[in-house]
Design a protein around this nucleic acid. Structure first.
Lengths: 138, 138
DNA sequence: CTAGTTGCAAATCATTTGCACTTGC
DNA sequence: GCAAGTGCAAATGATTTGCAACTAG
């Protein structure tokens, strides 16, 4: 139940927060933009303000409940935090997003940061390309 | 000379284009945002419109003269194309940007894309962290 | 009760665009 | 001279914020 997750991170249980969390958990996709979530909620008859979706998502991000990913075309998507880290491969035609994790890449990043004297706080690796389906379709 | 580079990619030699290119070549930093370039030009007495800086940079990007990088805080920087590919490590405190290239990471990315049936068109790897200098300063 | 939350509309920020004017070739 | 390029100001799209009304604990 969503209420528990909200309580755990010290957020009041409110309608909007529960709704957004529910979409992230059982929505049409694991990777959704604020507007996706907003539209999805409207389509299911749940009334909410877009500004609230943004506010709630930002709070969730701070609370580490979700992770925000910025893609090169300038829009960002949110994804429920499953605890695991992974990177993304994005189809530039259809927008499909797939996840991957490569320990070798992770290790190399650590090594590079250390070498250059940086303390890593975060990192993002996005591969952009054309997926098999779109490649056939043209 | 900048005029040659412009001619090579089939762009008319104009004042604004020459100015922007000059800043990218001899400016204060290899990684500059449109606004950085705009402000730098104003500060050196060169008059230009911000919209023109954006237009020119977009043309340069199309002409493969420069590469645009999108960072997680939502702003992008432009960098003169030296032909080589590399990724970035960004200090989240002072904004310092350093470059690195790791063949192992590159190879793994290729492998992953192939495995998932994607044709890579582009990719970006950004490591965010705190540089040695900022770490001391607090 | 009252601090935290929401909705709405207006504000911001980075970037783009329409259009009349200017300039390179 | 004319198509291409530029400046300016207004438009855009994504996201944020001010504020008055609402609600969870």
């Amino acid at each position: 139940m969503e209420t528990a997750e909200l309580k755990n991170v010290g957020l009041k249980i409110t309608g909007p927060r529960t709704k957004v969390l529910k979409v992230l958990e059982n929505g049409p996709d694991r990777h959704l933009s604020a507007e996706d979530i907003y539209n999805y909620l409207l389509s299911t008859g749940d009334d909410i303000a877009l500004a609230t979706v943004y506010r709630v998502l930002t709070q969730f991000e701070t609370a580490k409940l979700v992770t925000r990913h910025h893609f090169a075309d300038g829009h960002s998507v949110f994804e429920l935090n499953a605890g695991d880290h992974h990177d993304h491969i994005v189809c530039i035609k259809c927008g499909r997003v797939e996840e991957f994790f490569d320990p070798e890449i992770e290790a190399r990043q650590e090594a590079i940061a250390q070498e250059k004297g940086y303390k890593i706080t975060d990192h993002s690796l996005n591969i952009y390309g054309i997926c098999a389906k779109c490649d056939q379709t043209g």
